[in-house]
Design a protein around this nucleic acid. Structure first.
Lengths: 230, 230
DNA sequence: TGGGCTTTGTGAACGCGTGCACGAGTGCCT
DNA sequence: AGGCACTCGTGCACGCGTTCACAAAGCCCA
């Protein structure tokens, strides 16, 4: 008993699955389901049931043996653990194609990440309105971060400007960055960075496609075929 | 024995890093660098040097001891292993905000993934042009996949339509799917699926932010405190 | 009340990925 | 030619994550 205030550290792999469970729980709740088993949850999340139980056990013992997990209660616990009991405003750097799509997406605010601001370095883009937010100049970044209490920055610039964008975000006080540019950002170790790279994802798929195709097609002349040394 | 059929299997973790190495190699090549060490490559990729060497060793022994790796040669080998010696046309399902951004992004074709088509279920979107490609109706999906020899499909629909989109893609003959919708797709085991979920990424960042904030504070009503202690 | 059924929570084994450390091969300089 | 400096390739140990299997715990019903 006595829920340890001792902050258990949750494994990274588990942290990355919690949002998935959360969304599923929300769906179930919306459908009027008020109890789920780890088996059912696992099925919906496409993972192993034991993994679900172990993941959830890191939050505490919130299930009932022989019954399962109460949806709303568990949902609240996951939210709390993920720090989603309050909003996290984000600032988007780059009002190009991607920045516009992100701003217009709408799903951000709904999920607890309202857009605190969008900035761009291009003067001609400043003043236009995206997703209900006016694009401001990148020099205003520090002010936006301060006044809106922004902790999370989104880099949606071309690769060439991404490092500069990240530097400015860090300098402005942001401590987490979601990077959409196809480069490896160099930031202080204390800054948490997550990367989303479409080209990388496609190339990974390409690998498995190529492998599926048999792998040995497309023999290129001049390739020094190596003997089978493992 | 007979490793030909088994074709060295490359660990998933390595596969997901190869695209990163590839991009770095391309940059180096463009800058006129014609030789890199694993140390340098590791620095640019933000990983451990031993990991780089081990990753590359799965492709074969393409380095030169005492020297490093010849950029262009290694780049070719990585490309070959990833199946990037030829283009992989993709078809995008969903011409909404995200689909438009993806089509307009341009980086697809440049990186070997030309857009073979964009489809939408909404009649009013059919006929409009995105990124130089005319939006066609989703019913034309099988024909597009067939004629353009498309293996990779991109799901860029709202969550509610994503499963239907995936079903249609699979039925049309696509074998790999890149999913941007915030749901877990249910597809045959033979289909390779990769998921990109912005909300999930933000929620993961939220976790680390919340953890950073002190951990034991989970005061729901506003927390105006939060001094500038980095 | 007690027995049986269900499902959680977790100890333990296994497998994969990471990083170290070092032998082996290569080029350069004297 | 020989020695030296450098870097690759990899065996090995370690740690994390996954999965199995099962005891503990709760519910239902006779």
């Amino acid at each position: 008993m006595a829920p340890d205030r001792n902050r258990r550290r949750i494994p990274d792999a588990t942290v990355s699955r919690l949002p998935v469970y959360l969304r599923i729980l929300a769906e179930q709740s919306a459908e009027g389901v008020d109890n789920v088993s780890s088996e059912r949850l696992a099925e919906l999340a496409g993972v192993n049931a034991a993994k679900v139980r172990k993941d959830l056990s890191y939050l505490g013992s919130y299930g009932t043996r022989g019954v399962g997990y109460e949806v709303d209660y568990l949902m609240y616990q996951v939210r709390r653990e993920l720090g989603l009991t309050h909003d996290w405003p984000v600032v988007i750097v780059g009002a190009g194609n991607l920045g516009q799509a992100l701003a217009g997406h709408g799903g951000f605010g709904e999920r607890g990440f309202p857009i605190g601001g969008i900035v761009d370095i291009d003067e001609t883009k400043v003043g236009t309105v995206l997703g209900g937010v006016r694009v401001r100049h990148i020099d205003e970044l520090p002010q936006i971060v301060q006044t809106k209490r922004v902790n999370i920055g989104v880099v949606a610039t071309p690769g060439a400007n991404a490092q500069d964008a990240a530097d400015r975000l860090v300098k402005a006080g942001v401590t987490s960055i979601l990077n959409f540019a196809p480069i490896v950002l160099s930031v202080p170790r204390s800054i948490e960075v997550r990367k989303v790279d479409l080209a990388v994802e496609l190339q990974i798929l390409s690998y498995y496609e190529q492998r599926r195709a048999g792998g040995s097609i497309h023999v290129v002349p001049g390739d020094p075929s190596r003997s089978a040394t493992a």
